[in-house]
Amino acid sequence: MSDAALPPDSAAAPAATPASEPITPAQRDDLRRQGILLTSIEELYNWGRSHSVWPLNFGLACCAIEMIAASMARFDIARFGSEVFRPSPRQADLLIVSGTVTKKMAPQVIRLWNQMPEPKYCIAMGACAISGGPFKQGYNVLKGIDRFIPVDIFIPGCPPRPEALLHGLVQLQAKIRGQPLTGPDAPRHLRSDVECNCPIPEFGAHDLVPTQNPTVWQPPQPIVRPDKA
């Protein structure tokens, strides 16, 4: 790589770093361009994790077909290290909620989430998994899977195109790479003060009991536009 491709201040930047201060990501990238690989345990760990996210082989509705299409030849999810669709939740890192979650199905989805080992991530794929989507007014439709389990990435669309799923996967990888391993923002699997399991609702006489998991979801305050207040 020629020096002309580097940003103008790149040559001066590494030299200006005192040995006692941590190296910044920009400086690390600059060093990489010079052929020097410097890394931290945190970066190496997250880099490894983010490029082999194994999804659960779990289709719910229409979006599942697009999820299959994303793993087929044209879209080829293998480019992102996620082609290994595992049939068992015990072997999966990523739950792609691909489609409408009905109230009859919700306990099973949550049970699958609980059976997945940490670190685990959840993508709500499509309008139905986000909010109920076009079927929101149905009596048997859960109005968003985020009422029961924590969701990392929301992919809108009905159904989202396979490209959108790939984009969501890339966003998830960026999120994993940005997770610090220590401190209050550490992921769930490295902390002992966070409950990883979500309570599984029961079938009631008219609805699920309870209808939501208040530790992960609270109804947001409505947005009031200043001109309509």
């Binding site: 719910l60 509705a61 489609g99 409408t100 009905t102 009859k104 199905m105 099973q108 139905c128 079927f135 007014q137 149905g138 009596y139 048997n140 439709v141």
Partner: peptide, 14 residues
């Protein structure tokens, strides 16, 4: 059955 019962007929009537 019923794990994907999303009330198509009820929605169609509304």
């Amino acid at each position: 059955f019923g794990y994907l019962h999303r009330n198509h007929e009820k929605l169609g009537e509304n």
